[in-house]
Write a protein that binds this DNA or RNA. Structure first.
Lengths: 203, 203
DNA sequence: CCCCACTTAGTCAAACTTGGCTATTACGCT
DNA sequence: AGCGTAATAGCCAAGTTTGACTAAGTGGGG
């Protein structure tokens, strides 16, 4: 619920403003906030007494828009949430990691190719982020810490590029996926379909 | 829905098996799968024709457990999902990034301290992951690619440690958060409470 | 001057997640 | 033998998130 935070610093806002701001940050990508969630969140926060609906104006026959403000309680709650996120680690879920855990279900050649491909995609990403860091628009019109966030993403991505390439090589090299204890024991069924016969003599 | 994948390689399984396997991977952390989701997912996958309920045995007066298998259609679907995740980037949502975007709401000294703290937490994490990589248990009893996943996490974390420290310094140095265009213009209201008076002469 | 396409603002039902609950059996300890 | 604790299976209602939809104003090209 970081909608609360947004409302807090745009103070009197209505839902649509919040939506636009979020989309302009393309925050739907890295926060879990799609446009549809916003109005529900606003109503729920109001119920909980963290927000106040201060006005409901209507222009013509368009849907009425309700304007919100943060209450003292909301201020507190936000502070708490924010501190919590700043001071504590919280591993975010990562779909790629989940997919990677099924490595043995992919043919080795494809897995390696996909990893190399991923490395390239990441590199392209890094390049475009770098470019945006240089661009005048970002340098002059966006708060500086936005650039810092981009730097974080770049740093993580670069680290991952290296990993992708290292792992691609290992996958190609044909090392067995099975743990030492189970070498030439029978593993679970259901692994060996994507695998191109992991060559029992693999080392 | 990577429950499907799990069912696929443990072939005839019942819900509880899946649950245990997931928890043993502590997959509730990096996938978005809490124990409660499993049974619902299984039923839904069955409805969609991706799974088949093959048996329902009952031991004593305990809840009956239903055993599932993957259908051909499920096999296909899994293949598609898996490939999609392997070949395409998909930025996962990251709560810290979201929190960081509210940097101006934190006093500079606290922000810097929190960043340093984060760096330390990450370092501790990396250390414990490194240790587990050395441990015999992981080396001998777990498939090798599990270690590779740990390496990925370490690499990302290390990149982030560096970033935290660099940013902590910048925050402390007092550089203004405002974009060049808005220097000494009035920004949005609602920023300046956490900020310890961003000293208009800050540079 | 009219029509098409886009923007504005928000609703809603459906899907998905979650955490807590139930109720039985097995196990270890004294 | 008795008792408390842990493990076994799974259910369910409540809370969240989502993507698709509505429906009126607006603007500019032909």
């Amino acid at each position: 619920m970081m909608i609360l935070g947004l409302v807090r610093w745009m103070q009197p806002v209505h839902g649509y403003d919040v939506r636009r701001e979020l989309l302009s940050w393309s925050a739907d990508k890295w926060a879990n906030v799609q446009p549809g969630s916003i109005y529900h969140a606003l109503r729920k926060l109001t119920e909980e007494g963290l927000l106040n609906a201060v006005a409901t104006e209507q222009v013509g026959a368009r849907p009425a828009r309700t304007t919100y403000e943060v209450t003292a309680k909301g201020e507190d709650e936000f502070e708490t949430l924010l501190r919590n996120l700043w001071w504590n680690l919280s591993e975010p879920p990562d779909p790629f990691t989940a997919a990677f855990s099924f490595l043995p279900a992919m043919p080795r050649s494809e897995a390696a190719a996909a990893l190399r491909n991923r490395a390239n995609l990441l590199r392209a990403n890094v390049a475009s982020m770098r470019a945006s860091l240089e661009s005048d628009w970002v340098r002059n019109a966006k708060p500086v810490h936005v650039s810092w966030m981009v730097e974080l993403w770049s740093a993580r991505a670069e680290a991952e590029v290296g990993w992708c390439e290292r792992i691609a090589e290992r996958v190609e090299s044909g090392v067995s996926y099975l743990p030492a204890e189970l070498e030439n024991a029978d593993g679970w069924p259901g692994w060996r379909d994507g695998e191109e016969r992991p060559a029992p003599n693999a080392e």
